[in-house]
Each structure stands twice: as structure tokens, then as C-alpha cells.
Design a binder for these strands. Structure first.
Lengths: 234, 234
DNA sequence: CGAGTATTTGAGCAGCATCAATAAGAGTGG
DNA sequence: CCACTCTTATTGATGCTGCTCAAATACTCG
């Protein structure tokens, strides 16, 4: 049941965030840092729906996503649950928080993680400057994701929010089939709603609306064929 | 006209973000880094409403805010303007973007900045590990601000968004008088609206509503006395 | 003081939330 | 493999919140 469907173990040097020019650290140092991290990391597989860490827990570990997908949840005092982000391979969990995790991480599908003790990473960072560099890039990636999230939430209508979400999501090669244009949703209607700031009934209704307008075609609840041209157009 | 009302020049070592435990770098290194940065930085004063940098411009400089307040604007293709953040002394501008600035920075009041050439900071960072550390902390600060922003935008009603905004804002000591409980708004109704994802008419109406409920008392358009206890209660 | 900008206020409507009921899928054990 | 249960998704009816367009008022700055 916990058996992952992952065919191969992704090497850590795929983690580098390419959205920023390498500032001063040469690539060799980053590679060195990755292999150093690889040595102290341990492989960890978690089944779908399992919790990797909980908001408020002592933040002892950081995790590199090798494969799969996760959801970051933030529990509000008023009882609402907010989805802060969806995470894909190449991203890192647990580097932002200080002594305790500021949010929870939940596996959406079976995931393959590399777990590293935070203190070990910090010790290692003293000898490998590439590590700090890598963490800096990961934080930039988180920040850009947050900016994107804010832009999505600022859209005036639920329809444009959802269209923006689908277009962003379709950039994930493991869940969007370019040939068939079919997007596999790894998250529920409620997850999407909690991410975009709406109710899951509205999410469902907008999916329906998009189908009547031929923007999308529902294969089943979790498989949706996109009409990318039309979604990008209006 | 460009004369700043700032009484003193804030030393750079006030910049350290205290929300995270110092990982491994001892404080002495951070101080060293700050004085090194101080040497290559040049003082810059900008009047209220002036643009520090524009979205899309070549990101040659980073700025440390010594005093004043700024607004980060993101221009969308559809013509809407989004306020991504309000920045206060101690924060840094321009470290997130890569080769071009991803958003614009506008002075809300007269500001005093320390301007540093990005390339010079990168060169200096090779000798002073504290610099990378400081940048890492600043990115964490940006990310936490973004998380807060997302939480605010997720609130179900415009009233709770605005209350959340006022409570967050009242943490700024230079604009909230603890004794009189008066908050000085450095931003317009439209700025607040563009930050929270609503129209400025709604912002105005909610201010009115909060006054009728005795949650706030308007001294004038830009001076508002808060009834903090009532705002925190419901 | 006057022109331009920011804010307030009003009326009407559209979109989304709420509550509620049904339908479709997924998971489980016989 | 099927029947049963539990979860997830859809659909419906209704009311309220906040948007739109429009006008009036307050404030700012030269």
C-alpha cells in the first residue's frame, strides 16, 4: 500500500531553481553541496493522504521532494483551513520555518522524499557554501509561488481564479499530458477551493460552467481535458 | 521638497530579522557583514510618491530601508494594479528578482534608503558569509509577509480583511501611537483595496461601518483611532 | 483660492456563500 | 465480484455581500 509508483530516484542536483541567475557561486560548488547533502539524507516514502509534518511541530527536518506532490495547509484559529501551496518535485519543505513548522505538509499522492536533519544541514553548510546558495534559491522559489498565489486570489471572479489555477497547474509535466491535453488533478475540489479562497460548491459549479463553454471536458472527477487555446484567450 | 524628515540614519545592523534563530553564523559575522555593506552603500532620499524602481527594469541595485514606507506594485496584463506588500524600515528591496525587477517600488512618504550595487554585494558576499545569511533572513521576512497577505486575502468578508489589515498595520511603531491608539495611514483607500483584493468604495464603506460600530474613530482621512480591544474580540 | 485628486455616499444588480439534497466514486469486507 | 459504507462531487434554491456606475463632498497642493 505504501509502495511508491516512482520508477527512479531523482538525483539532488535537479533541485536547482533556474529562475534566477547564479549569483557568484560556480555550478561546481552547488553540485558538491548536493552530493554532500545526498550523503546525510535518508530516503523516505509516504503514502497518499499521510502527513509529513504538522503545523506547530518541532521543525527538526527538511525534505527534498524526489517525486509525487504535496499540499501545504495552514490551520486558522477560526477553524478554516487554508491551502498555502501545492508542491512538486524539485521543491523543498521545511526551510522557511524557524523552531516549529508554520504549516502542515500532506502528501496528495504517494511521495518519495529525501529527509535531512536540519542541524546536519547547518553544520554541512559551514564547509559547503553551495548549500546556503541552494537554500536561498529554494526560498526564492517559495516566494515566487506565493506571489503567484496572491495574483490568483486577487482575480475578481471565481472563474478567472480557476482558469488561472488550471493554466498554472498544467505546467507540471507529470500531471499534464501534452499530447492528449489531459490534466490529472491530484487534489480535491475542496483543496482547490481552499487554495483560491472560495467554497468547494463554487469550484464544482465553475468546472461545470467551463465545460458548457467548451473550455474544458471532464473525463472523470480527477481527469480534465483542457482547451488551452480558449482558456488562454479571453 | 526632497528633504527627508528623518532625524537620524539607522545603522545597518538593525536590519537583522529576528523571527528566525540564527542558524550557524555567529552574530559577529553578521555585524561584520553589515559594516562591510555600509562601506559600499550610498545614501539615497526619495520624496513621497516617487518611484524607486519599475517592474521590468534591470535589477542593478538592492536597497535597505532606513526610514519611511514603501509600496510594492505589480502591474497585471489586464490593466489592474496589485499591491503586493507594504515595506517598513529594516526590510530590503530588490533581492528577490533576478535580472529585472518583478514589481515596482513606490515611496509612500519621504524615504531614506541605502542603495547598493547588486554586483558589489555579490562580490563582497564571497568574503563575508554573514551577507548571504542576512539575505536569507530578508527572504524569510518577505515570505512570511506573503503568507500573511494570503491569509488576509482568504478572509471571507471585506470587513474581516480590513480588520486584519488594521491590526497588522498597527504593529508598526512609527505609524501607530500606543498612547492615543491613533493609526496614521500612509497609504490611500485604493492602495488598501488593491492590497486586499476589493474596490476602494468597499474599503471606504467598511471604514464607515466600523465607525458606526465603534470599532474605529476617524480623526481625518488619514488618522484613525482604533478600539483595539473590540477589533481583536469578534 | 482654485484645480485636481481622494474619499464618501447612493442605487441597483450580479456573483458567490449558505443550507440542503442527490449522485457518483472509492474503499472494504464478505 | 458484488454489496455496503463513506467520502467526494454535483446540483438546486435563496439571500447577502460587494461590484458597478454615478454623483457629491472633502482634502491637497500649487
Amino acid at each position: 500500500m505504501v509502495t511508491s509508483t516512482v520508477p527512479y530516484s531523482r538525483p539532488l542536483h535537479n533541485l536547482e531553481y533556474s529562475g534566477e541567475h547564479a549569483p557568484s557561486t560556480p555550478p561546481s560548488l552547488v553540485e558538491e553541496a548536493c552530493s554532500a547533502l545526498e550523503r546525510i539524507g535518508c530516503d523516505l516514502k509516504k503514502p497518499a493522504k499521510s502527513i509529513v509534518f504538522r503545523q506547530g511541530e518541532s521543525a527538526d527536518f527538511i525534505y527534498f521532494i524526489q517525486s509525487g506532490a504535496l499540499r501545504l495547509d495552514y490551520q486558522l484559529e477560526d477553524g478554516r483551513n487554508l491551502v498555502l501551496d501545492f508542491l512538486w518535485p524539485g521543491r523543498v519543505l521545511g526551510i522557511v520555518e524557524n523552531d516549529v513548522y508554520a504549516w502542515s505538509a500532506i502528501a496528495l499522492v504517494d511521495v518519495h522524499l529525501k529527509r535531512l536533519r536540519r542541524s546536519a544541514v547547518q553544520t554541512l553548510a559551514q564547509n559547503y557554501p553551495g548549500i546556503t546558495d541552494l537554500l536561498l534559491k529554494q526560498k526564492t522559489a517559495s516566494l515566487m509561488a506565493a506571489k503567484n498565489h496572491i495574483i490568483l486570489m486577487s482575480h475578481p471572479t471565481a472563474t478567472s481564479k480557476l482558469i488561472g489555477f488550471l493554466l498554472d497547474y498544467s505546467k507540471q509535466p507529470e500531471y499534464f499530458n501534452q499530447a492528449t491535453q489531459v490534466l490529472t488533478l491530484v487534489m480535491s475540489r475542496k483543496d482547490i477551493a481552499d487554495y483560491l479562497g472560495m467554497t468547494f460548491e463554487t469550484t464544482s459549479r465553475i468546472f461545470k460552467y467551463l465545460e458548457t463553454k467548451n473550455y474544458i471536458k471532464k473525463i472523470n472527477h480527477r481527469q480534465i481535458q483542457l482547451n488551452t487555446r480558449m482558456l488562454l484567450d479571453p
